[in-house]
Amino acid sequence: MHFTKSLMLLAAVTTGASARVVGHERRQAYAPPASTVSASPTPSSSASNGGWTATPPNGEYSNQGFGESTGSSGSDITYQGNTGNPWGSNIIEISAESAPLYKNVAQFTGQNTEPWTVVFWNKYGPDGQMDGWFGNSALNLNMNPGDVKYVAFQDDSQGGWSAAPGTTVPTGMTGGYSATWGEFDFSSSGNGGWSGFDVSAIQPQNAGLPVQGMQICQAIGGSVCSSITSDAAVVDNAYTTAETALGGVGGNIPGGGPVRLAVVIDYSG
Rank of each mutant, 00 (worst) to 15 (best):
S46W: 10
W87I: 08
F184N: 11
I92H: 04
S226A: 04
V151T: 05
N191A: 07
S45Y: 08
P165L: 03
N63V: 12
P100H: 01
Q215R: 15
S162G: 08
V263L: 01
P41S: 07
F120M: 07
E243P: 09
Q205F: 03
I220D: 04
A207R: 02
S38C: 11
G269S: 08
Y239C: 08
H2F: 12
S200E: 10
I92L: 03
L261I: 11
R26S: 14
Q107L: 13
P56C: 01
Y267F: 15
A99T: 03
Q154I: 00
A47H: 08
Y267T: 05
T36F: 07
S89W: 02
Q158F: 01
R26F: 14
N104R: 08
A11K: 07
N191T: 09
S72W: 10
D147A: 10
V21A: 08
I91V: 15
S18L: 13
V169W: 08
W87M: 06
P86F: 05
N104M: 02
T78C: 00
S187T: 14
L10H: 11
S6K: 10
P258C: 04
A163N: 05
S35F: 08
V264N: 12
G172P: 04
W87Q: 00
S45D: 06
Q203F: 14
E68N: 15
N191R: 12
S69K: 15
N191P: 06
A152Q: 00
E114A: 14
K149Y: 00
G132I: 00
S230K: 15
L141F: 01
G159C: 04
G16F: 04
K103F: 07
A262P: 02
S69E: 13
G221K: 10
E243K: 08
Q28D: 13
G16R: 03
S18I: 04
V22A: 11
V151S: 03
N144V: 06
F3C: 13
V263E: 00
F153K: 06
Q129D: 13
P57S: 15
V148R: 14
T240N: 03
S45R: 09
Q154S: 07
V199S: 01
V22K: 12
A245S: 14
G175H: 09
G221A: 03
S223D: 15
Q107I: 02
Y267V: 11
A219C: 07
P254F: 00
F3S: 13
A29W: 12
N140Y: 01
F186A: 01
L246E: 09
A262L: 11
E183H: 08
G84L: 10
S162Q: 11
A19F: 09
T36A: 10
P204M: 12
H24L: 10
L261H: 01
A219Y: 02
T55E: 00
E93V: 00
S46D: 04
G222W: 04
K5H: 13
Y267S: 04
G255L: 06
T167G: 06
P43V: 10
N206R: 13
A11D: 13
Q212V: 09
M214L: 14
T174C: 05
S95A: 07
W181T: 06
T113S: 11
S72I: 04
I228M: 05
V105C: 03
A242R: 05
A96T: 05
L139I: 01
Q212A: 10
G175Q: 05
N142S: 15
I77T: 12
G213W: 06
W87K: 01
K103E: 08
A262W: 03
S98N: 09
Q218T: 07
P32F: 09
L261V: 12
N104A: 05
E243I: 10
V264H: 00
